[in-house]
Design a protein around this nucleic acid. Sequence first.
DNA 1: TAGGCGTGGGC
DNA 2: TGCCCAAGCCT
Length: 363
Amino acid sequence: MTITTLDTPSAKPLLDWYDRHHRDLPWRISPGMAARGVKSDPYRVWLSEVMLQQTTVQAVKPYFEKFLERWPEVTDLAAAENDEVMAAWAGLGYYARARNLKKCAEAVAKEYGGVFPDTEEGLKSLPGIGDYTAAAIAAIAFNRQAAVMDGNVERVISRLYAIEAPLPAAKPLMKAKVALLTPSGRPGDFAQAMMDLGATICTPKRPACSLCPFRDACQALKSSDPELFPVKAAKKGKPVRHGAAFIAVTGEGEILLRRRAESGLLGGMTEVPTTAWTARLDGETSAAAAPFAAGWQASGTVIHVFTHFELRLSIWRAAIPSPVDTNDGWWEPVTNLEAQALPTVMKKAIAAAIPFAFKTSRA
DNA sequence: TAGGCGTGGGC
DNA sequence: TGCCCAAGCCT
């Protein structure tokens, strides 16, 4: 790979654009404040970056506020109960992030005396912090000249240089371009400016090129169509899996819940009893697979789409007078479901059998 | 390395 | 409406 500085534009127009058009976000120090010496809190930067992994700003905002209010410092999070953290994360998705968040907080508290390491290498050694997040924290919280590359930056760079090679193979080339473009002054603002640009101007569809600070330098705009970039490798089809979920409700208004295995899909989260989720549609989706004998009644089907498969869950409901002894799980009052670590698919399953179990109809 | 790993919004 | 997409990480 040959990289030259000859075709590298200046970062100054981008930084000037950022000074005027940056987004105000709960975890962000505005460039004006930063220029006056206000430092961003590494804990807040880390917390927001982990939450923002593959997750939209709008989805993250309420979770960030909730976590910060409940656990104001990394040492507070380190001392929290795992179940509390998982319940607080419920609904945000990619639950391995929550497990790693807790592990990371504990490592920072115990191994680093409650202070985040200030180098990419040190940060990357922590659970849940990879290439992107390590560079982002190093740049934003510690003002290090790290090459920050996320999906936004990939899009901006691929267009700026009209990179024809498909992702993910083209990543090293793109990262080298980012490194050349990253200024030694204001590296954190540069990283955030690239991401704001990708989120608001250099969007996947219908980019607003006339408003872009790189409009004079952009090779895709000059010689092609920016919307054609980045080029991506072909995707594969999404398989369908089937299963059954069982919602048992006692006369006292309790529901049978249990805890999923610690690792894997929805690891460590709470669920209602379900069969295995298999590719085949067979007897396993019938009431014969229920956790105990009762008058199980079909209550429709819930379809939930995960990243790599579509789940069709047959819902079965039973009203029983009092709790039944089961090998695992517990009986939880329906009025206390909001406090459980229930992923969205489980809220949908419960809502299908008990329409008023949750405040919002969506789940 | 490529696949596992959630969820909700936009078009 | 079915897809694409969103501040990726881990194995």
